[in-house]
Computed example of a mutant assay.
Amino acid sequence: MAELTYHYDGSYAGLLSVLHRIFSWRETPAAISAGAPAQEDLFSAPAQVATDPERADLLLAAIREHLSPETPALVRHAFFSETAGVEMAIYRYLAHGWKVRRRLDDDLACPVVAEVHRLARRVRGEAHRLKGLARFRETADGLLYAPLEPEYFVLPFLAAHFSERLGQERWLLHDVRRAKGVLHEQGRWVLADLEVEGAPSLSAEEEHWQGMWRTFFSRIAIAERVNPRRQRGFMPLKYWKYLVEMDNP
């Protein structure tokens, strides 16, 4: 019997639907990948699995009941690392979990457990940094706009944070690299594809405060103690592009 290569729509719920089928039917995957199969494979049979929120919820409920309480969050954070092969890494992690049950997330000596923890830690770390480094700009129409280019897909985690922090404000988080955005209005937010051509026009007040902030930032520095290498350690260079204080006035 040919091994199965599973294909899904690329969503988190889609992956959970695939994993629910695999564990329920006691199958062993050859691979799990997003999108439809490009061509027939002589050595594995393709299986296109439709996203089923009910199946996804059933798997999460089983994980919470039988594995570690930390496991669902670790799986979700690792998935949004978008690392090549993350689907199989999560499969192997959960397959090990069904063997060791509640001891899963204490078993860090196991490579499949350590890998998922490593990916989840990276995503959590970047989300945490961007909660402080995201710079919202007020546009001419009153929207608070923050462009970002994160290494990992952290918009869902940032959205929940800023929704609570900014209350009823109208704002947009824009992942420029992935052409996706989170729009928040009237206390609710939605994640969708987003293409923005050119930089948005800023309000006069925003231009004023940006100038004031750059002046403060430049004058508070002690020239003799400027240490670019140490500065990059605290604020990695990859985030400087959208920091107001790093713009040229």
Rank of each mutant, 00 (worst) to 15 (best):
I90C: 06
R92T: 06
E54D: 15
A78S: 14
R76S: 10
D52M: 05
E82Q: 02
T51Q: 12
L133M: 06
A47H: 07
E82L: 04
S68P: 01
L74H: 04
Y91D: 02
R135Y: 01
Y93K: 00
P53M: 01
L58T: 15
P111N: 05
L133C: 02
A120L: 13
D141W: 02
L94K: 03
G132A: 06
F80V: 00
Q48V: 15
H96W: 13
L59V: 11
E138Q: 15
V75L: 14
L74M: 13
L59C: 10
E115Q: 15
A73R: 09
L144P: 05
D106M: 04
L133W: 09
F80A: 00
A78N: 07
L67F: 12
A134H: 05
R129T: 00
M88K: 07
S44M: 02
R103Y: 04
E65G: 15
F136Q: 04
P72K: 02
P46S: 12
A78R: 09
T71R: 03
F80Q: 01
A84V: 06
V112A: 15
H77C: 01
P72L: 00
A56L: 03
E65F: 10
V100R: 12
A95Q: 14
L144V: 09
P53D: 15
P111D: 07
L144E: 08
E87C: 06
L60I: 14
R55Q: 05
P46H: 14
Q48A: 15
V75A: 09
A47T: 02
E54M: 13
F79S: 00
P53Q: 14
R118Q: 06
A62T: 10
V49W: 05
A62M: 10
L144F: 11
H96N: 05
P69M: 04
H66G: 00
A95N: 11
A56P: 02
S68E: 03
G142A: 13
A95L: 07
E138D: 03
L58F: 06
R118W: 02
V100E: 14
L58M: 11
A78Q: 10
V123M: 08
E138P: 01
L108M: 12
V113A: 14
D57F: 11
S81R: 06
T139Q: 07
G85P: 08
L133G: 12
R124D: 08
T139H: 05
A61D: 13
F80W: 12
E65D: 14
L108H: 10
C110R: 07
A78E: 14
Y93N: 00
A45C: 09
Q48R: 13
D57W: 06
T83N: 08
A84W: 01
R76N: 12
V116N: 11
L67Y: 07
A114E: 10
R124F: 07
V113D: 14
A109E: 15
L74F: 06
L104T: 12
V75N: 07
Y93L: 00
A114N: 04
L67M: 12
D106N: 09
L119C: 00
I90Y: 02
D107I: 00
L59I: 14
V49Q: 03
A140K: 11
V100K: 06
A84K: 11
R64Y: 05
A78D: 13
C110Q: 14
L104A: 08
K131C: 09
A84E: 12
A84M: 02
A134G: 08
